[in-house]
Amino acid sequence: MAEAMGFFTDTTICIGCKACEVACKNWNQLPAEHGGVKEMSGDSYDNTQRLDGIHWRHVRFIEQFDGPYNGRWLMMSDVCKHCVQAGCLEVCPTGAIIRTQFDTVVIQSDVCNGCRACIAACPFGVIDMNPAAGTAQKCTLCYDRLEVGLEPACSKACPTDSIQFGPITELRARAQKRVEQLKAQGETRAQLYGDDPNGPLGGLNSFYLLVDKPEVYGLPKNPQLPTRNLPKSATFSAASAAVLGLLALVGLRKQRMDDMGGGGAGGGGVSPN
């Protein structure tokens, strides 16, 4: 596999312009919700609200104020994390989801049959159906562009370089420096999310610089693989199956006893044929 590529998103220089969101839709020719005719959300300037099958990028707006003019306005451009251990890939029953030579996670739309297991499997709520395609869709990390040596459309469009694309190892180093700079400037809450290869999911190939708790940005504190539940779940089921089996046999046994004990309640059990 070639070098692992991905994103470092420095949310502290995101101006919420949504150029990334539009660039993604443009390059991937994704439709707008209801053709763009819809109601505003009233949730700050965020009117697309979530990542889903037709929003592969999403810019979140978080207003943290106490009293007029007194606070801060966080913005963050979210996307598929291209997890090193990807829950979506793990469960996909058709093999539609693959890991590419760039260590990114891609759904092959022509293979996907829309069973939607991946949607529930992703710890970040990244995937959803694309109603037009009838398949589950998400960020491909512009696989088609990477293959021809182009930068992803979103990071290319980002005017402030809040979204930085490159080899993960380089990005991690850069990110570390930025965190230290922010800490030096007194932003004690500055932290990286998903940069640790020994951390959750073996690290995220799209990781973030945050200045508050992950939950504030809609990110789980400790994302996990869905199969963590498999062993226990399976064992308990098997166990209960065994219990029921026993109960059934015990029942039969008891009946025989009763019958041998002659003329138990109910007719003699002579079967019609």
Partner: peptide, 13 residues
């Protein structure tokens, strides 16, 4: 006129 932009700020406020 542009769906991609209209959905980002769909209404006057």
């Amino acid at each position: 006129w542009l769906p991609w932009l209209a959905e980002l700020q769909p209404e006057l406020f």
